[in-house]
Design a protein around this nucleic acid. Sequence first.
DNA 1: CCCCTCGGTCAACAGACGTAGACTGAGGGA
DNA 2: TCCCTCAGTCTACGTCTGTTGACCGAGGGG
Lengths: 196, 196
Amino acid sequence: MEQRQRTETRILTAARRLFGEHGYDRTTIRAIAFEAGSDAGLVMRYFGSKEKLFAQAAATPADGPIEGSPEQIAELLTVALTEKLADEPGAALAALRAMFSYPEAADEVRAAMTGQQRQIAAQLPGDDALLRSGVIGALTLGLVIGRHLVRLDGLDASPEELMAVAGPLIEELVTTNGRRDTPPRSRRPVSGPTPD
Amino acid sequence: MEQRQRTETRILTAARRLFGEHGYDRTTIRAIAFEAGSDAGLVMRYFGSKEKLFAQAAATPADGPIEGSPEQIAELLTVALTEKLADEPGAALAALRAMFSYPEAADEVRAAMTGQQRQIAAQLPGDDALLRSGVIGALTLGLVIGRHLVRLDGLDASPEELMAVAGPLIEELVTTNGRRDTPPRSRRPVSGPTPD
DNA sequence: CCCCTCGGTCAACAGACGTAGACTGAGGGA
DNA sequence: TCCCTCAGTCTACGTCTGTTGACCGAGGGG
């Protein structure tokens, strides 16, 4: 019957929690089965292998497309980031944590992020668009990891408070017009020994 | 003689490289010993345990104090970040990668980062200083991880190019006067629809 | 000569892991 | 009644890991 589906769901839920909390290597199939009130052999039977279980548990629907004018892009990015900062991303958290010890997960996350970045960069003005979209990605990565994984000080505020600080940065990254003919009143970053 | 010291150094170098590349769990003592042209038993004899070996390999001298006026703080942060973005941080990279699967490493890194953040926050104006220093930490984390660990698109530029984009963000985070009575000079050439 | 230290090697142990496969027991058509 | 399916359990195998302890060869006092 659908008894099987209920068991699979319990296993997936347990897997997400444990993968997200302890990473790929430290999470054993036995532990997942125990938390799901089940058995390691059954997990193998249902999901085939630990890798496949992880793939299903960490599968994340991926954000919708980010497109439009720079202002719209900034808006979409802000909304997406706010969601990511909301409580417990579940599958995404597992993928992020595993990323650093389980190469396949890293490739998947990187592919998703770079795909979105290229898409954004193509719509930004300026010839350093890719670089700026990379910094946007880095800021996103840092905020999500810093909040959920590292629990940095000061990042435990509400998503709205966080975005009140981070939002303007994204706006600036998106709307700044590439070449710095008119530098934004920046007082020279460090010394400038022409790097090349 | 100092033959022992040379062997210890070779082991530590190999350990840093492997811990940084594969993380804590996936790096075996045997692999470290092999790369160092040595033996697993000897590694145990010299360092006591895998944990202690990691502690020595991932020990990072920690940045100097960040203090002064907001402009000086921005300058110091920029310099520190530029260094972190330069090639192969070695020990720091190992600590960062291990952070997500080896809790002790996570605690150490978090302690170092939050310590520095609090120090910075205490010198920033505004009542959301801690939050802003948290975002600075997130940006730093995201840039270093995005560049060295995830290899995000667009972050493979030179540290100087990266800082040309990220520097102004740090400046803004440091100098913005907390309460947004005076909105930051982020010129928005387009409409500025207050999102909220 | 013996003996002792010390850098280094080797073989083995105990535990944990992913995985495979045999087993149980209920349920429901023929 | 028999028999088949299917969710779930239990045991075992092979491998890999950190760690231990016995062993070996060189070298320099006594």
